[in-house]
Amino acid sequence: MRPFPLMLFAAGKGTRMGALTANCPKPLIKVASKPLIDHALNLAAAARARPIVVNTHYLGDQIVAHLSHLPIAVSAEDDLLLETGGGLRKALPLLQSSPVMTLNSDAVWTGQNPLLQLSQHWDDSRMDALLLLAAPGNARGHTGQGDFLMDDQGRLVRAKGAPGLVYLGAQILRTDRLAEISEQIFSLNLLWDRLIASGRVFGLVHQGGWCDVGRPEGIAEAEALLAGARA
């Protein structure tokens, strides 16, 4: 199994967390006595991801200090928060090659390692993106009907209001076409739509549990998920 570079998104302001992020960046909020970003880094280590790049913005100096003992590169967005697409494009010189894995730092997982699942199912010949997904009922902390519809070959299209599968914040993605996008600040949704039009975006359903930790109540829900997996 080949190793992939990993972009770990950790630059968000965490405003939905309210007072919890007044003096602490969301990636350092603890779930089951461990900072969220450490949960993500454990997944990365098990998947042998390298190099690993973390982007920072809000209270980024705390994240840098937390990571200082690890061989991890930091892509600082001190002056301007670039969103996922702009942040990934800025980090490309540190990631060194394409395709790359990306992982959000504000969720916890149970079951099979999401990054290993993706790397085991990646197909260079037909994929520009492979997104990890779940049915809405299996996506704890998520609100809404879902993001994508998947055909029997695994190919994705936008759900466009129909009940669909939820994107869980983990993927493998070719980065070449990021250069086509003129905006400095943009979401990866913009790139996905271009790749979907080419029929080269695929999905994979996560074999395990997942919980978004975007709001304060998500902490207890995530800890319950992890405790249930250990029981």
Rank of each mutant, 00 (worst) to 15 (best):
L8H: 03
M127G: 01
V100W: 03
P5R: 06
G60Q: 12
R194G: 11
Y58C: 10
I196H: 02
D151E: 05
T21Y: 06
H206L: 12
H66T: 09
G146V: 04
G199M: 14
W210H: 12
V108K: 09
I63P: 05
A179F: 05
L178D: 07
L88I: 04
N138R: 06
D38H: 10
R177C: 10
F9H: 06
L190Y: 08
M17C: 01
V53A: 06
V205Y: 09
A76I: 11
A170V: 00
L70F: 14
L195F: 08
S198I: 05
V64T: 12
G228I: 07
S97E: 12
G111R: 12
G86L: 03
A45G: 11
I219V: 14
I63G: 04
L41C: 06
S187F: 09
V157R: 15
G154D: 12
V53P: 00
L95S: 07
L95A: 12
R230W: 01
Q171W: 01
G144Y: 05
L28K: 13
P3Y: 09
A49L: 09
T21C: 15
V213Q: 07
A76Q: 14
D152H: 12
D61P: 05
V74G: 04
S75C: 14
T175N: 04
L226E: 01
A139L: 04
Q112F: 13
L226H: 02
G12K: 00
W192I: 15
V166C: 04
P216R: 07
I172R: 00
P71Q: 13
A40M: 12
G12N: 13
G164D: 06
R50K: 14
D152K: 13
G86I: 00
V31Y: 03
Q153V: 10
Q62V: 10
G12H: 14
L41D: 02
L94S: 13
A73K: 10
I196N: 02
I29V: 15
L225R: 01
Q184H: 07
Y58D: 11
E217L: 08
L103M: 15
P71H: 11
L225T: 02
K34E: 09
G154S: 13
V31W: 06
G18P: 03
T84Q: 07
L168F: 07
G85S: 02
I219G: 01
H69C: 10
